[in-house]
Design a protein around this nucleic acid. Structure first.
Length: 506
RNA sequence: GCCGCGUUGGUCAAUCGGUUUAAGACGCGUCCCUUUCACGGACGAAUGAGGGGUUCGAUUCCCCUACGCGGUACCA
């Protein structure tokens, strides 16, 4: 009885993929891998008016970046293709016709304009079992005129004929028993006038043809689930219907409602996985990738948004997620997205991942900022030194820029109020000592510094901050002597000298 | 409006009727460490929407109300 696990992610290629979409991918992927099943990517491009060039490629790129690659897709192919619904167009009509023959669907000749007018007249208008009695469809017209219209090629759609007052329920993996009364759901269009199926027909037909065993989708689909269940019942039999799981939504951090790309702009964090530029409007939306997130952290954070292992573990590798994941532990309620926590996840991953995983990207980031990363070995030491202070990959240039270029801005106010002739003298002497230092390492540099301080009768604490400002320009960064060691003799002395010149004479 | 799904601290959340003074994490506050900023450590503030039941006993089960969200397209 146990059939092979086959799950699918079925996005509509209309723009960038946002958090919620990627999380749906993730849960599909985790389940498939854990169960030794297949993860399929199917492109739901049945709405030709919403075609957006590049959106499909964006999906591939995003899945690749996240490391959530499908087993079958339009690109990869597979035994159940084509994987783009527009290319399966010809296969849908016969199912719709079959439903008409069974009496579960009907032709409707109302034009979109007519229906729009109706909705304007009656705000609560629904094309349901009641309304259909008064509209232009094959239920209200005689056989002959229907045939005439059809023969004449009159534009029409095929609608599902929802039964009256019937309870349709199913067992949701996350929510348990869910049921709806059919009188409350209207006669959804199954086949559009352009012969393309709507989502309702296409999911059912394709999930059947592709032998999908489990469907994980957003909670926004719950209200139309009875349509899908009925379609399964009539077309392929309830025994073959996939198991459903409706995922909770990801909500705005403030206010209310589903998280949308607009919230990102408004609140200053990414919502899409990667940067996306709408080719039609030119509108740019920022992505987590370009913002400086590691895919490991992004995936980890998403997994925990609505699911938890029931243990105290929060940092998970993909493999650990595959092993620990379970639908039973997915929350029912929606989760408000928390960017602060996302930053924390990224910070953890920056600190724990081997440098080799991301030093190339950090190097690129330096180049983008006009800094020359130079020797890779030195770069690694620098990254190692500052990574505790970086929540994002993009924080590195800010946190370590002074290693590659003398500070552009100098926090003079941090030193000048307490500046004195004695301190000035100290640094003049320090330069001579460093000039002659035989070993340019952090420890001996610190030792020389402190011995001189003692000899000058100044507390080292009074001198350390000025020294830091000289080298770094501000009150941040790793230990000063580590910095001096990596900066080298020439640069260190040069920076001491230039600050001394900026300070007021005393 | 109607239908559906939800509701534990500011946020993510554990608890699957009974050693719980209701975990843990993020964030926040205080302190320690650090003669910078972080990291780290210690401590702290902060939670079961309201009302009825069921039960010896409810955060846990049921009902009602409130609130939130979703849906209500020839979009997905």
């Amino acid at each position: 009885m146990s059939k092979r696990v086959r799950v699918r992610f079925a996005p509509s290629p209309t723009g960038g993929l946002h958090l919620g979409g990627v999380r749906t991918v993730l849960y599909n992927y985790l389940f498939a891998r854990q169960q030794g099943g297949d993860f399929i990517l199917r492109i739901e491009d049945t709405d030709q008016s919403r075609f957006v060039p590049g959106a499909e490629e964006y999906i591939y790129d995003t899945l690749r970046w996240c490391g959530l690659e499908p087993d079958e897709s339009p690109l990869l192919g597979g035994g159940f293709g084509p994987y783009r619904q527009s290319e399966r167009k010809s296969s849908y009509r016969r199912y719709a016709e079959e439903l008409v023959k069974m009496g579960h669907a009907y032709y409707a000749f109302d034009t979109p304009e007519e229906l729009e007018a109706k909705r304007k007249e009656f705000p609560n208008f629904q094309y349901n079992h009641d309304a259909r009695k008064h509209l232009r469809n094959s239920l209200t017209m005689d056989e002959l005129s229907i045939q005439e219209l059809l023969d004449a090629g009159t534009r029409h759609v095929i609608r599902i004929r929802m039964p009256e007052n019937q309870e349709v329920g199913f067992d949701d993996m996350i929510r348990g028993e869910v049921s709806f009364n059919t009188s409350q759901v209207d006669d959804k269009v199954l086949l559009k006038a352009d012969n393309m199926p709507t989502y309702h027909l296409a999911v059912v037909v394709d999930d059947h043809l592709m032998q999908i065993s489990h469907v994980f989708r957003g909670e926004e689909w719950l209200p139309s689930a009875p349509v899908h269940v009925l379609l399964w019942q009539w077309l392929f039999g309830l025994d073959h219907m996939p198991t459903w799981a409706h995922l909770p939504l990801i909500l705005k951090p403030d206010g209310h409602g589903k998280l949308s790309k607009r919230d990102g702009d408004r609140l200053g964090f990414p919502v899409f996985a990667m940067d996306w530029t709408d080719p039609n409007t030119g509108e740019k939306t920022k992505g987590f990738k370009e913002r400086g997130f590691l895919p490991e952290a992004f995936v980890n954070m998403l997994a925990l948004l609505g699911w938890n292992a029931g243990t105290e573990q929060e940092i998970f590798t993909l493999q650990e997620l595959i092993d620990a994941f379970s639908l039973e532990r997915v929350h029912k309620g929606g989760a408000k997205f928390n960017y602060e926590k996302a930053l924390w996840f990224n910070h953890e991953w920056i600190r724990n991942l081997p440098l080799s995983r991301y030093e190339g990207q950090v190097s690129d980031l330096f180049v983008q900022q006009g800094l020359n990363p130079g020797d890779p070995h030195r770069l690694s030491r620098i990254i190692e030194l500052v990574k505790d202070r970086c929540h994002l990959l993009t924080d590195f240039p800010q946190q370590a820029g002074f290693f590659f270029k003398a500070p552009a801005t100098i926090d003079l106010a941090a030193v000048s109020p307490k500046w004195s002739a004695a301190k000035n003298q100290f640094f003049v002497e320090l330069m001579s000592i460093y000039e002659l230092a035989t070993s340019w390492e952090a420890e001996p540099l610190e030792l020389g510094f402190k011995e001189l301080a003692a000899a000058s009768q100044i507390k080292p604490g009074e001198l350390l901050l000025p020294f830091r400002i000289m080298l770094v320009g501000g009150k941040f960064g790793p230990g000063v002597f580590d910095i001096a060691a990596l900066l080298g003799r020439v640069e260190t002395i040069s920076r001491i000298k230039s600050l001394l010149q900026l300070l007021p004479a005393v």
